[in-house]
């Protein structure tokens, strides 16, 4: 038996069939276990899991707003410390405080709150579930949307052809905070993701994991391809898997031979406007990035 059997993320949630965000939540809780408190930013995951009176969560969970999952979690973490010390609450239990937000809630509107929480040294893990756009509000671009991907606010027009800026490198910015643990992950590599969650939770202080999560609705592909596409993102070098532990950078998965980005791009409607030259351009860009990382 490879994976823990406890299901702390219940079925019946309203995520689209094949939703990658649901897979993030399920894997996360399998790795973290029941002594966990979740602070969830507004976004697909929050909305699909908690329409009153139904919740998919079997761990204590709080949602307050969109841009402040990290700040809310700061309060939770501080309260646990104070209540343990002053009133002997929670016995000696180690409680995992985990904030989770989408790419919009993390890289854009929640960026200040995240930076503050990481810099202050709270004992918490922040999970950025990255589906590369604002999905909950209908697929608008975020700073985590990749170059040339079409979204409703970066449409493929005749003059501007999809997103005109490269994807913001949030994990590296978090690493620049000097926190003890930063990692990237992808749901298509569950052992890797869960190992990283476990490792992060074994370290005291602020931790950050960016987990790539293909989104059938936003990326435009048939739902059964969610895992396959995530795998291709990694195999092509578009989304490298690494961890940075105490400043030490390490690739955690190295494709034997990188696949052409074309295989990945061709599967998704958000890239269907790309010409061969566009694909060539993206390939070059990825080649350069991979070279820097030693991929």
């Amino acid at each position: 038996m490879q994976f823990p059997r406890e299901e702390l993320f219940a079925p019946g949630h309203r995520g689209c069939a094949g939703c990658g965000a649901a897979i993030v939540a399920r894997l996360l809780l399998k790795a973290a276990g029941k002594d966990t408190i979740i602070s969830n930013a507004t976004g697909c995951l929050e909305v699909m899991t908690t329409p009153y009176p139904e919740t998919a969560w079997r761990v204590p969970w709080i949602h307050t707003a969109f841009e402040n999952a990290a700040a809310t979690a700061s309060g939770v973490e501080a309260a646990i410390k104070a209540l343990k010390r002053k009133r002997g609450k929670y016995k000696d239990k180690k409680i995992n405080v985990i904030a989770i937000g989408g790419d919009g809630g993390t890289a854009d509107i929640g960026f200040q709150s995240l930076s503050g929480a990481m810099e202050r040294g709270h004992d918490m893990l922040y999970i950025m579930y990255d589906n590369e756009a604002y999905m909950n509000t209908g697929i608008q671009r975020s700073s985590s949307t990749p170059f040339m991907a079409a979204t409703t606010t970066s449409p493929a027009g005749s003059k501007i052809r999809g997103e005109d800026r490269p994807k913001k490198d949030v994990a590296m910015i978090m690493a620049a905070h000097g926190i003890p643990y930063v990692a990237t992950a992808c749901i298509s590599y569950p052992e890797d993701f869960m190992r990283k969650v476990k490792k992060a939770l074994s370290i005291e202080g602020p931790k950050f994991i960016q987990v790539l999560q293909p989104c059938t609705t936003g990326w435009g592909y048939p739902p059964e391809k969610t895992i396959e596409i995530g795998r291709l993102a990694v195999e092509t070098g578009i989304f490298p898997l690494y961890e940075i532990e105490n400043g030490e950078f390490r690739i955690t998965y190295k494709p034997a031979k990188r696949k052409p980005v074309k295989e990945y791009l061709k599967m998704q409607k958000r890239y269907r406007h790309l010409t061969d030259e566009d694909i060539e351009r993206i390939q070059k860009y990825i080649d350069e990035k991979c070279k820097l990382l030693g991929l």
Binding site: A10, P11, G12, H13, P53, E54, T55, A56, W57, R58
Partner: peptide, 14 residues
């Protein structure tokens, strides 16, 4: 609107 029943989404048969 606190939900006191963990995993109550199981009522929603998807």
């Amino acid at each position: 609107a606190i939900i006191y029943e963990p995993g109550s989404s199981i009522k929603n048969k998807t």
